[in-house]
Nucleic acid binder design. Structure first.
Lengths: 189, 189
DNA sequence: CGACATATTGAGATCCATCAACCAATGTGG
DNA sequence: CCACATTGGTTGATGGATCTCAATATGTCG
């Protein structure tokens, strides 16, 4: 079943009681969306937390009218505009699908109720949030201290298949450089 | 009392029951340290969460043998090597005091016990973690899309007094540029 | 095939790091 | 109270990385 990967992902953080797991499972909705579907639109409040079961997608900002891809996600990642989801304010970023995707959806309100009802789910939520904080911190750090070439090489070792699934321009933006620069970095090998 | 500012800070996130607040208060230790004291040393595991009651301090990395200040904190901020504190691995960064400081200290183990014992404290911990995530995300975003001058101007509106307390070089590193560049940006007004 | 997205390459401009000199304020020990 | 070191800040010259603009492949899909 599609939700198996969801539960094995969160089990890496902590195990839930059967009761809590059932309650959580009950609130998750599996949906399929086609490539290029807009999951979150900038300016709108995002009321859902998504878990990407299959496919990949990108988050991007509008800067001077141009889309700047800021991150992407692959299988088994939590996805949302964390800013909007946490703060209930309109999102600054949009999310659009790079492939056909299978996504598990959890309403903000349902999650809050689960947090309230199950201490262990709130515990899990805290651990996952901490983990995402560390990932972001690591990325911030890398941007500051590594050269573009190092960032690119590291990305390739972590996700060797990424260029088969994501256009070069998006990867470049993720690394904080332009597509032309990344193309040149790749050329010089 | 020194802990009043701590509790009014966390009350901005959520209120605790009297029982939970007392249990938390019981585990907090107020300490004073002199300027230049090293609160966290790179390479060591950080077992404490700190709350800065009075004073200011900076976190820095070593890069090519040089200290690069990555952030600083003022009154009413939570401070630690989040990486080390969350993951229990040796810290990548050090923290040193820019002024004499009054600091509330909470042991990692005590915090975990409080989390276990009080759902409401775990709830609070989740909210605060989410909040710190958003602050980091905002900072990451600003770095990507704003010019150094914009970053500097924004910093001045948020913390107009900062240059009275923090040497220019540290501020520059925080903004991701060198001291010389920041000096030039300031000159051209 | 034609249209549109994706990738490469080139040339000039720009921002900023680096290296180095210099200056002002402060502090310290003789 | 002076000589000197230390810290914090400014200024100048140079080079490197990368952005921008533009032209030109290379794909890919209806």
């Amino acid at each position: 079943m599609a939700l198996d990967t969801f539960f094995s992902t969160i089990r890496a953080f902590d195990t839930l009681s059967e009761e809590a797991e059932l309650a959580l499972r009950d609130k998750l909705i599996i949906e399929e969306y086609p490539k290029n579907h807009i999951l979150i639109k900038e300016g709108k409040v995002c009321h859902h937390l998504y878990f990407l079961v299959k496919g990949c997608l990108r988050g991007y900002y509008l800067n001077d009218g141009k889309e700047i891809t800021n991150w992407f996600a692959f299988e088994n990642a939590f996805v949302t505009s964390f800013y909007s989801f946490f703060s209930k304010k309109p999102a600054n970023e949009s999310i659009s699908l790079l492939e056909d995707c299978v996504i598990a959806t959890l309403r903000h309100e349902d999650l809050q109720n689960l947090y309230r009802q199950f201490h262990e789910i709130e515990h899990l939520g805290r651990l996952i949030t901490e983990n995402y904080y560390l990932i972001l911190e690591e990325r911030f750090f890398s941007r500051q201290f590594k050269t573009s070439k190092e960032l690119y090489d590291h990305l390739l070792t972590v996700s060797p298949h990424i260029l088969q699934r994501v256009p070069l321009g998006y990867v470049a933006a993720y690394l904080g450089i332009t597509q032309e620069t990344l193309s040149r970095i790749r050329g010089k090998l």
